[in-house]
């Protein structure tokens, strides 16, 4: 009798274990199913490379190029903030901080990660945007530049904590060998430690990028919302996530607009999927390189 019970429990766990696979498959299915009407109606080329996003005009135009470019612009800008600050913080925590400093700094960086994105958006809208507007004397502070700054700050913990992991995996023998050759700590850091952790650090940047591209509330509140092809960093823009969040409420279910928003969701999903696969591939290679397989 007991073995039947054991078997039943094992079966139950096996079935439940597939839940995340089911949800992921469900997301893929839903995104494709709801996007296909849009793509068949508009044709893929006009959709992807159309320069105008006028969903409520008559006749409506659904070209997502301005939205894709806006996402790209904001993400690239954010990298300039989160890469130096994130990696710099990780290097400080891992190489320079004393044990007691580490004990304080690591939780603080984690705290930065636990702040909800709506709070970042709120902060960006009330502080960063007016500051940028005054600093550069531009008509509105709600622009790609402000969004980049706020998104960059948001992504610091992602970059920092994954980089820090990578740095902590570098064997001590590497450093000792470098010191014994007469290199000082900075030379050891830049010539030995960073190259050894390079793939882990690049993983952190890719995952940070993935988080930035998928971030919604911050860009919705800070980026300005103009769906035109961005010409400079100081123009208001409307990235893909902000478009979905802002327009889904007013799009009639089943309309071309509704399906187009799902198609944008599909593009976003595919982008983050590629980023994650890339990060996974790099980190696997890296573990093998340092002789840590898991």
């Amino acid at each position: 009798m007991r073995s039947y019970k054991e078997l039943a429990i094992k079966m139950l766990f096996t079935v439940l274990a597939f839940s995340s696979l089911v949800f992921l498959a469900g997301i893929v299915f839903v995104l494709f199913k709801e996007s296909i009407p849009a793509i068949s109606e508009i044709n893929l080329f006009d959709f992807l490379f159309g320069k105008y996003w006028y969903p409520t005009f008559e006749p409506a135009e659904f070209g997502v190029l301005p939205l894709i470019l806006a996402s790209l612009e904001v993400a690239v800008g954010a990298l300039f903030v989160c890469v130096p600050l994130g990696i710099g913080s990780a290097l400080y925590v891992n190489e320079l901080a004393s044990a007691s400093q580490k004990q304080i700094l690591k939780p603080l960086i984690e705290t930065l990660a636990s702040i909800p994105s709506i709070i970042y958006g709120f902060f960006g809208m009330l502080i960063v945007a007016p500051f940028i507007q005054k600093l550069f004397n531009i008509p509105t502070g709600l622009c790609a530049f402000s969004a980049s700054v706020v998104l960059g700050v948001m992504a610091i913990p992602t970059v920092a904590s994954i980089s820090e992991d990578a740095l902590s995996f570098v064997p001590n023998s590497f450093k000792e060998a470098s010191y014994s050759l007469g290199a000082n700590r900075w030379q050891t850091l830049t010539k030995v430690v960073i190259p050894a952790a390079a793939s882990g650090i690049s993983t952190s940047v890719i995952l940070g990028m993935s988080r930035i591209v998928g971030e919604t509330m911050t860009v919705l509140m800070v980026s300005g919302g103009a769906a035109v092809i961005p010409k400079s960093f100081f123009d208001p823009v409307r990235p893909m996530t902000a478009t979905i969040a802002a327009e889904m409420g007013e799009a009639a279910v089943g309309s071309a607009h509704y399906h187009c928003l799902f198609a944008i969701g599909l593009i976003l999903f595919l982008i983050t999927l590629v980023f994650n696969a890339l990060a996974e591939a790099i980190s696997r290679k890296y573990r093998i390189k340092l002789g840590l397989d898991r």
Binding site: A25, G26, V30, V213, G214, E215, I244, G265, F269
Partner: peptide, 25 residues
């Protein structure tokens, strides 16, 4: 491996895409 991969990928899905899924389903 398949389950682990799907967990990793699910963790990377943008939050607004979860919103779309919730809306449709």
């Amino acid at each position: 491996n398949i389950i682990r991969m799907s967990i990793n990928n699910l963790a990377g899905v943008p939050s607004v895409v979860f919103g779309l899924f919730g809306l449709a389903v």
